[in-house]
């Protein structure tokens, strides 16, 4: 199945892309998808564990959550500038 990825701010810089889609195993958990994201864009390691993660515009509480086809996963690192 395919899920949509949204990278914001520093994550977009590190991934070199703001929006993309990835093919993941059916019934993959959020943890599995994020592991795959880190393998595809290793530079994102910098923000790993230091981001708000959201699925379909809601905070991702449970990394064991099973994603569905077309789900939108957002990686939102904090911005500190002002």
């Amino acid at each position: 199945m395919r899920v949509r990825l949204l990278f914001f701010a520093r994550a977009r810089e590190l991934a070199g892309v703001g929006e993309t889609e990835v093919e993941v195993a059916s019934h993959a958990t959020a943890a599995v998808v994020l592991k795959q994201v880190l393998e595809t864009w290793p530079a994102l390691e910098e923000v790993s564990g230091r981001c708000v993660l959201a699925v379909n515009q809601e905070y991702l509480e449970d990394m064991a959550r099973i994603l569905k086809e077309g789900d939108e996963v957002a990686v939102l690192p904090p911005v500190s500038g002002g």
Binding site: R10, E13, E46, V47, G49, R50, C51, V52, P77, P78, S80, G81, G82
Partner: peptide, 24 residues
């Protein structure tokens, strides 16, 4: 929201990364 502080490299400054005036 952010129990772990961002990495130094993630904290880009306006002086380095730039900022469009109207964004802030």
């Amino acid at each position: 929201l952010y129990p772990q502080a961002p990495a130094l490299a993630s904290c880009r400054r306006c002086a380095e990364a730039g900022v469009l005036g109207v964004a802030p």
